[in-house]
Amino acid sequence: MTTVRLRPLSIVPEGEEVLVGDPETGTFVTIPAIGGLVIEALTRGATIDEVAAEAEAAAGQPVDIPAFVATLTELGFVDDGSRPEAAATAPIQGKRWVAGVSERVVRPLFGRVAWCCYAAIAVFCVAVFVVRPDLFPSAARDAFPFGDIGLSAVLLVPFSMATMALHECGHWLAARAAGLRARFGVDRRMMLLVFETDLTQVWGVPRKQRYSPLLGGMAVDVVLLGALLAASLAVDDAAVSAALAVGIYLKLAGFLWQCMVFLRTDLYAVMVNLLGCHNLWRVKTLLLRRAFGRLSAAETEELASASAADRRAGSWFRWVWLAGFAGVLGWFALFVLPVVAVVLRWAADGMSAGPLAGRFWYCLVCAALLLGPYLLAAGLAVRERRSRT
């Protein structure tokens, strides 16, 4: 007469399968529909024998329930009275899932009406660029807009950090509106440092409800860009226009960034959901290794058990990833490193006066603001490599 107590799990039908997970630990898996039936029976308090009989009746053949319960235990889905902890998904990350605001308060911000407004603002932005192409940024004019490298750093970096933080808050608030919680961290994409919001709990809601949390960050970006463009149309003061142009430049660069799905951006997550994939990032790696004949026996087995949707998407996404990776390396070498060299030379010049001069510290702080993120990303990469060996 054994029963098994399960933790509060989310169960979402997903095509012919069921997506089951523990939102508290961020562990989610897909199982065949019969597995969903077993979990529902166990949750109801049915004994192992009763569950086995029910499952056999549904499947038309005996189902190995003890083996499945062992798997559920391994996944941490069985309630053993302890408080579970979510595994880290980023190198620097808060442990706690953040609620913070009530669902009811933020729901109007991410309902159907709100999303229609965000779409309308996006159309407005495109229309402004069509009518006033001079407002479209040019890198030469807007990247170091204030003439002085130091002034650009002092003004740009904090603005950029603030809008990135707002973008992440957009994800979090949209997740709250869907009744989910998120957690914040810092991660890297190749050599770039990023703020990251863990939205893994979206697997606990039906497929259509996942888009709002995934696109919540870009909704904030669109509203900001719309405001910057509206302000640009309204003012004719040259200095204010130049400052607004920098903001527009940064926002558009942010949209370009999101399009780089091979860097696992927001639009990558949207694409995964559209294609019905669940483990594309890993399957892409396995398929790429296979293409270069570097698949181990264990990996061959892992690939064989991957879903058809993941393998289908992975077969072309691996090349998108490879081309994107090479493209970013090229961009970094051609466009970023020369700027880094200019900044270093500028800082070295300014610091040659020695630490008693005010300019020494000004240049040091500016160089740290501009180059700090790259150094931190490099540090994270080194740490990853060490923990792997």
Partner: peptide
């Protein structure tokens, strides 16, 4: 029959404008 389980990846949202 045994019930096969497939792993589901984590979902990471990022912002950047570098």
């Amino acid at each position: 029959m045994t019930i096969e389980v497939r792993k589901v990846e984590s979902v990471k949202a990022t912002g950047n404008d570098a």
